[in-house]
């Protein structure tokens, strides 16, 4: 049998991988993929807590799974809008490298 902690540790490591990807990579599409990794790490810990908290009827806590459902839906919409913005940016600037996109930099 697994403990709750093992799922939480896996979720923490996955979140850190995504976080390191956002900080270390300079390609905007890879940064976007790393954001998806972080969202999914949060989803994993939510589902682990939902399975851990069993109701008196012997069912898992479904409110956490509903939250995961909504997170997945919003993430799908976010990916569509974000990729459209990246395509528009590529059309205007001919690059996806964030060091070349620095007009707002002070």
């Amino acid at each position: 049998m697994m403990t709750l902690g093992s799922y939480l540790v896996v979720s923490a490591v996955l979140f850190t991988i995504g976080f390191a990807g956002v900080l270390l990579r300079r390609n905007i599409i890879i940064i976007f993929m790393s954001l998806e990794l972080m969202l999914n790490a949060a989803n994993l810990s939510l589902v682990a807590f939902s399975r851990f908290r069993v109701s008196p009827a012997g069912l898992p806590e479904y409110h956490a799974e509903m939250l995961v459902f909504f997170v997945i839906t919003v993430a799908a919409a976010e990916v569509a809008v974000g990729l459209a913005i990246i395509v528009a940016l590529y059309r205007a600037r001919r690059t996806t490298h964030i060091d070349d996109i620095n007009q707002l930099k002070f």
Binding site: M1, T3, L4, G5, L8, F52, G58, L59
Partner: peptide, 12 residues
């Protein structure tokens, strides 16, 4: 965290 070391309870 204390509950992180507990096992998952059984489902009905």
């Amino acid at each position: 965290t204390r509950i992180a070391h507990e096992h998952f309870p059984a489902l009905a």
